[in-house]
Write a protein that binds this DNA or RNA. Structure first.
Lengths: 226, 226
DNA sequence: CAGGATCCACGTGTGGATCCTA
DNA sequence: TAGGATCCACACGTGGATCCTG
């Protein structure tokens, strides 16, 4: 394995992407950070995305924050997934921002579907109270939803977007959705973004994001590694 | 409706049983207790089975505590089910005692299967902190497991009984089993009953029972009352 | 502002314990 | 001791809040 620093070219194929992931499987994030000449923080309190961005760099994901999959040419989205020592996901997984002034369009036009069609799940094994550097990179899983999973994701998305489109944002609860939920996605609870109410009038509300529930990502990992 | 006291003859048919159940649907347990000339306790702390036994009396279930369905001629087991005001089961449901020195025999010979083949679920609507007399009798549901439900119950039973038969009782956790679990069923944690260990030697352990998880009975009621 | 995510207080669920009757 | 069940402390899950980077 060659030690490289700085940015890296995008992988040319699924195979190359999987090889890059396999090359660091078993390593700690501190080891990967050293290879990339990046500092390892003592905690994630003020840098929650550190692990994900470290692996984006290593794997050669497109820089920047664009509403597209991380590897546009491959149609693959990268998601790191904090798991406990038994391999069970510990947190929900952010998918994308909810468009609160949505253009017309169905599930198959949605950003959620675009991003979830093919995902490279990269477990980060996180022991209790362990610092970020001690997290270990697990075996990557290149996943696409089964027909059943896609059906339920679509149902969830349609149920939620129906309310968004009707301006019923205040009637959306994080408890809705079997696999997919809508939760706040903002700097803080005072942040505001443009939306509209049920009368069609412009208004301002807390920005929201789509998230996958832990129960769903647990199912995905169990299904493949059990 | 005739007011009757004391014991009642067993119902001669499913239809008669369902009619007796329908006759008290909507009533409070205090009203039923008055009809049966039974005292209503102020709480259930020292009489947890009061509601169940009241309805056994009203419906004409066989007296006594025998390891058979409550209506042997009809092959029907009666289960009262405490539910919240939204109709969601609040507690697990006791099925029967676990035989800790089991005779050989499969799922279809088991007491669990015998009792669960046909169950009359009788919801008892229980508002928060409401006394026993204020519980209201709901609409009865005569249920038999679907093929899928029966499959999972069988899987659970086989997984659990394999451990019991191997004397691995101490390795059984209440967390095992998707629908069916094994939990203590005793006067207290010092109670002991005969069993044997993994070396085949006689020993004494806490008596256990089979229980249905609330998630399962919620599924049953939802499926029928949607 | 979109994407990279985690933090943590608090409500819900339930595993273990328990009680009465026949 | 089998059957009728419920009680309740506490672990666990998660909904709402939050933080950094490009």
């Amino acid at each position: 394995m060659t030690l490289e620093t700085g940015h890296r070219s995008a992988p040319a194929s699924e195979q190359e992407l999987l090889q890059r992931a396999a090359a660091v499987a078993g390593q700690s994030l501190a080891e990967l950070a050293a290879m990339l000449a990046v500092q390892t923080p003592a905690d994630l309190d003020h840098n929650k995305g550190w692990g994900g961005q470290l692996l984006e760099t290593w794997l050669g994901a497109s820089a920047g924050s664009q509403p597209t999959p991380d590897f546009p040419e491959l149609g693959i989205e990268l998601k790191t997934l904090p798991v406990d020592t038994a391999g069970r996901p510990l947190e929900s997984t952010y998918v994308c921002t909810v468009d609160l002034q949505p253009a017309p369009g169905g599930w198959h036009d949605s950003l959620v579907w675009l991003k979830l069609q093919k995902v490279l799940w990269l477990p980060l094994v996180t022991a209790k109270n362990a610092p970020p550097g001690e997290r270990r990179i697990g075996s990557a899983l290149l996943w696409s939803p089964t027909a059943e999973q896609a059906d339920i994701l679509q149902q969830d998305w349609e149920e939620l977007m129906e309310l968004v489109s009707a301006g019923e944002l205040e009637h959306i609860s994080s408890r809705q959705g079997q696999y997919l939920q809508i939760r706040p996605k903002a700097a803080n609870s005072r942040a505001l973004t443009r939306s509209f109410d049920s009368d069609g009038n412009a208004s301002l509300t807390l920005p929201r994001g789509f998230y996958l529930r832990p129960a769903f990502t647990r199912q995905i990992l169990q299904h493949h590694f059990h």
